[in-house]
Design a protein around this nucleic acid. Structure first.
Lengths: 247, 247
DNA sequence: CGTGTATTTGATGCATATCAAATATTGTGG
DNA sequence: CCACAATATTTGATATGCATCAAATACACG
């Protein structure tokens, strides 16, 4: 029970039930560019193939290119003051990556497994944008989408325990047919435990232990370290409504 | 020591020293609109005065207006599945607030203390944007700024302990002359312990205990609950480089 | 000036970071 | 393609940080 605290916290108890978010959202990363726009973008782009862990762009380097994910998955990360890596997000096919801050990349982008990206020179892109207000708007929409994505991460990191964050992430991943075989209910994780830990704001050991717990509870099964069987998506979803701590 | 883990984590040891971020950034929320643009915005805006805790816009309601902070501070928050409030960010003079998602506000905005906002009808705004590509670009830039802001929160919530997060926040706040008297080194917090807790992803009790610890260590002094003396900004900054746990 | 609210302090136990070490897996050079 | 070295994953032990429950005190506002 949350007693009287809602007064200070913008929570109207009668409304709380309606606040259920319908989806975890990553899969909504619909491609916001029209086919025609995509073709125009591709006409000024270079295709780049990447191996596992291949560098797409590096924190601190001049941001001469914008990238569009063509195939595979990319990891966007940043290193903190204390020297630890935080994974901001993972980018999938259709996503934009490599936003500059004052001409410099603020994050590092790497391919998680083998991947392909479109590399687009900013010089050419800005010409294109100036001529095409519709594309311009698409980019604004895209940016807005990224803000919402980031806000979801803030919610998760601010309120959920590791099991909840991991469950939510698994639920997002199974929306991608590229990684999830709906038939066999098998989720192919390209990610290492380190990737997961750095994304979820925890340690690899804790990720392992949480996976072990989810397996004990019959929600998943670890076929190999990088291949999971999702036995109960509902069970994973149920976790999300629970409180951070049992007590 | 971080031993060999950097291989998996995009950390080049020789580079780590250069990765020091120079600032916590909130103060960089420069007004990205030119004076002329501001005037044009104001011509279609209504001034709205708000009392402490006054509602600016509410999660789930139709997003008919965009707002610009004129005076004071606003709290942008969202309620999670589990019924807890997360404060996404605080908005200061010049900041935009009230982005819609498919025509609906996804967050709640409230005045922290007394405040004033410009209320701008989307209908009029979109006409203006269509006619003014430069303004359009300003909004894109603004959006990009918000993404970076959010990413900083992700870094903080993912890696820092509560003392570090609180210290970082205090360091941001003292960049605002509105709230910080540089002479007397006095920071006037309009925020309650609940606000702080929900922003930092912790509980009011823990906020209190952390403040007590910072005071014991001579970094701050609590003159009243909402008035702090910042005795050593350097000391607060030093905290940020430490590890999450002492061990 | 009193009542509701906010802040503070205390006690307790859970979640998880950290250190250590064993085992499994992967990538690479021959 | 194999063997071996490097790396990743898993498990265990331990202690710290913090959420939670409880209650006392301080504060603010009508």
């Amino acid at each position: 029970m949350l007693e009287m605290n809602y007064l200070h916290r913008d929570i109207m108890p009668e409304l709380r039930a309606h606040r259920m978010e319908r989806s975890t959202g990553m899969a909504q990363a619909v491609n916001l560019l029209s086919p025609e726009q995509q073709i125009r973008l591709q006409s000024i782009a270079t295709l780049v193939d990447l191996r596992r862990n291949g560098l797409i762009f590096g924190e601190g380097n001049p941001a001469d290119f914008l990238y569009v994910m063509a195939r595979g998955m990319a990891r966007i990360s940043r290193v903190s003051l204390s020297g630890r890596r935080q994974v901001m997000t993972f980018k999938m096919a259709g996503d934009l990556l490599g936003y500059p801050e004052q001409g410099i990349y603020v994050n590092t982008g790497r391919a998680v497994g083998a991947a392909t990206v479109y590399r687009i020179p900013w010089r050419k892109l800005s010409v294109l944008l100036r001529r095409d207000p519709e594309m311009h708007t698409s980019f604004l929409t895209r940016m807005a989408f990224d803000v919402r994505q980031a806000q979801k991460r803030i919610m998760a990191l601010g309120q959920q325990n590791v099991a909840q964050r991991l469950s939510a992430f698994l639920l997002e991943l199974i929306e991608y047919p590229d990684f999830y075989d709906q038939e066999r209910r098998q989720l192919s994780l390209q990610l290492t435990r380190f990737d997961l830990a750095d994304y979820l704001g925890t340690t690899p050991e804790t990720v392992v232990r949480v996976l072990a717990r989810l397996e004990r509870d019959g929600l998943i099964r670890r076929l190999t370290a990088r291949l999971l069987e999702v036995r109960s998506a509902d069970g994973l979803a149920r976790l999300l409504g629970e409180r951070r701590r049992s007590n």
